[in-house]
Structure formats: C-alpha cells, structure tokens
Computed example of a mutant assay.
Amino acid sequence: PHHRPRQRRGRTSRAGSDAPRVSLVGGGPGDPDLITVRGRRLLAEADVVIVDRLGPRDLLAELPPHVEVIDAAKIPYGRYMAQEAINAALVEHAKAGKAVVRLKGGDPFVFGRGMEEVEALAEAGIACTVVPGISSSVSVPSAAGIPVTHRGVAHEFTVVSGHVAPDDPRSLVDWAALAKLRGTLVVLMGVDKIGAIAEALVAHGRAPHTRVALVQEGTTAAQRRVDATLATVAETVRAEEVRPPAVIVIGEVVGVGPTA
C-alpha cells in the first residue's frame, strides 16, 4: 500500500508531461548498494524495467508486483539485431505511457552501448534521462584492494575493451601504443582474449614480469581475485578457470597495498 501514492504521483506527472520518457540508469558493478541514489529512486518509480545480464539484479526483488521486468537477453528479435530489438522495446513501452527504466551494469556510456539507445529514443521523439553509474573499471579493482593510481607508481590509467583480439582487423585499439605506457591498464571483457592481449603487450615492449590481477564478479558475494604476470596469465586463467565477468588490471599497482 505504501507504494500507491508514489505511483499515482508519478503517473500524474507523466500524463502532464509533453512526451514519454525513458531513464537510462547505470546500475554499478554488481553490489546492489552501489547504484546511485537517483538510479534507485527512478527504479522505484518504474512501470517497466529492461535489464541487462550484468545489471544489479538483486534490486529487482524490491520492485512492486505491478512492475514488468524484461530481460534484455530474452527479447525475441527475429530479423532484428538484439540491440535494435532492445531499442524497439524501449520505444514501444515509453509510447504506451509507461515509466521505463533501462537498467545497465556499470556506467551506460562505458562499453554499455548506451548512446545507441539514446539515439534510437531521440529518433522516436522520446526524451531520455541518463543516470551515470559507478564503472567496474575503477570500482572492481578498488573492491579487490587495487588502486588504479598510486603516488609514485602510476600517474595514469587506461581502460580498454578486450572483446576483440589485438590481431583482429576490427580492433580499434593501438596495442603498440598501450604497451609503451608506464601506468595502469584496465581491461574489460577480456577474459577470453587475455592470452593474445598479453602476447601483444609483451611483443611491443611491456615486460613479461608485469603484474596482472583478474577480479571475477567484483563487489558481489562471489568476488575472487587471481594474480599472475603477463607471461603466465593465459595459463593461470585456464588453470584457475577464471570466467567472465572479470576486470583485468595490468601494472605495478597490482603489487600495492596490504592485500597484495
């Protein structure tokens, strides 16, 4: 019963607004406590929530019974690409007058294809509120006791997607340039390609003994950290059965701190 007044207020304000709206919410790295206050408030006011696999799913259990939760991975898309089907679902539910939240893991604009969804909504004349989220690129290392910067150790950190191998013609990453950097390299979506990534970095000049940490399911109850070097990481991932999602940290910061 305590949900009803808030829901009524939300519906009144939406009915009086000029156009349907969607909220694109970054849910953070996985721990449900690490969503922003604004993201949690919008989630509580939603009629429809379209969620990714990596969104903080524990938050969905708190939603009122009337809220429709749609798993983005299970939207049927036939002749559409999956992303186009998600875009279409966002537009459809918003135009039906629903308060729609698109819940993503991490931050919507850090390898989250968030801008593609904003563009699709804009083409349909639908306003979109973007709520930044805590990116796994910095929060997951933090949760494992690794600072991505540390005085006297690293003055920069670079976040790179590892979903495309270094020798793949589709790769947009200058691995030779990355190998020459002295700071921290954070690789997202790179578990399957870490062997090839390590080889490329060493081939272009990064020391084989450079420290590497893999943090699997960071910030959740299942979090674990596995350490290696560029020379050993491919075998370590196989031996330790590291699985996505995992954030990979490469650099001397891996050896900093009391947990190192």
Rank of each mutant, 00 (worst) to 15 (best):
T220D: 03
L103D: 07
R53S: 06
V249A: 06
S142D: 13
P245L: 08
G26N: 09
H209S: 11
A120I: 09
F111M: 08
A46I: 05
V138L: 08
V69D: 13
Q7L: 03
R11K: 10
L59V: 10
A96K: 14
H150C: 00
V242D: 06
S161D: 12
A213E: 04
R57Y: 04
R243A: 09
T259K: 09
M115G: 14
T149V: 00
A246N: 07
P132A: 07
L178T: 09
L90V: 10
G257Y: 02
V254F: 04
I194K: 04
I248E: 12
D18V: 11
L178H: 07
S13V: 08
V69W: 08
D31V: 12
I86G: 12
S13L: 09
K74Q: 11
A207N: 02
T232R: 03
R243P: 00
R170Q: 12
R238D: 12
P258F: 03
R79I: 02
T229P: 15
V247E: 15
R211W: 00
E252Y: 00
D167Y: 00
R224A: 06
P64T: 01
G28D: 13
R41S: 03
S171R: 05
T236M: 07
G10R: 14
G97T: 02
A213I: 07
G78E: 13
T184P: 08
A196W: 06
L54S: 08
A122W: 10
G16W: 05
A99H: 15
E68A: 13
R4C: 05
G16C: 03
S135K: 06
E123D: 15
G106D: 15
T229C: 10
V69C: 14
P32Y: 08
A196Q: 12
H204I: 07
A221M: 10
Q83G: 04
G218W: 07
A144V: 01
R40P: 02
Y80D: 15
P29M: 05
H204E: 15
